[in-house]
Design a protein around this nucleic acid. Sequence first.
DNA 1: TCCTGCCCTCAATTCCGCTTCAAAGGCAGG
DNA 2: CCTGCCTTTGAAGCGGAATTGAGGGCAGGA
Lengths: 147, 147
Amino acid sequence: MHPVATTGSREMIQAGITIGELGKRTGVNIETIRYYEKIGLLTDPRRTATGYREYGEDHVRRLRFIRRGRDLGFNIDAIRALLRLAEHPDHPCADADQLASQHLAEVEQRIADLVRLRNGLREVVNCQGHSIAECRIMDALCGDLDR
Amino acid sequence: MHPVATTGSREMIQAGITIGELGKRTGVNIETIRYYEKIGLLTDPRRTATGYREYGEDHVRRLRFIRRGRDLGFNIDAIRALLRLAEHPDHPCADADQLASQHLAEVEQRIADLVRLRNGLREVVNCQGHSIAECRIMDALCGDLDR
DNA sequence: TCCTGCCCTCAATTCCGCTTCAAAGGCAGG
DNA sequence: CCTGCCTTTGAAGCGGAATTGAGGGCAGGA
């Protein structure tokens, strides 16, 4: 046992972080943390003699990773995949790039579609007095096969 | 009633489209079509003598509209409202204008959110690193994930 | 006639990503 | 010791949008 931590070591034995503290540090709800543990997204932490979860800096990092991924719109499975990638730093990053690129493409497509819809709505809103026979909302939303 | 269709008229009486065909044409699951009917999103179609649903081109258009709306992330209620707008392209004033403005604001907000998301992802993709260890995606997600 | 592949209704169930609940026990300050 | 907030568990609930299952009926071709 190391009563005093070696600076920078991942083996540092430090005062365990409680779940509440972890939540505050990462901005993740306590219940969500327990949920992530249950679904195996977060590794099970050590426990104190009385059963309290004790987290370390590695958990803080992992949970921040998860949270950022969620913020970027990745679903749980995608985050699992990204975490697996992150666990193999020697592995080429093409896979990670592929995952993110695909997600980016989806987001860009969605933006393009929404911009079309927005334009249609703007025309409806800016009613200049004459009717819009070919409704742009329809154009934007019916979008035959073009995309 | 028009026994013979006028070209281009949406009043065309044509051989009814079956639900399966409608599903194929719109990319919407048969069960989902029946569900949309149940919740009043899709008007009830005529029926054959034996109770089969018979759809026309107007249903195809409406269902495509719904589908695109769902793809864009609108919930059922929003789509209901958009359908009402689309049904009165010649009457954009007063109530419709209010509804359209509201949707416009929502759509603009959604676009803004997605653009931020996109920018986040753009910073991350096309990583030139050779391994996960040097990968920008991972940098973005974990900062310093070492396990 | 039979077979295959549609179609019908209606209720129950799934999915995702949490969130809430209930009942119990722990810990620190005063 | 009391108070009050912390933590524990498993299970249930939620919202929205479907999807599935059971138990049939219909169409049309070989």
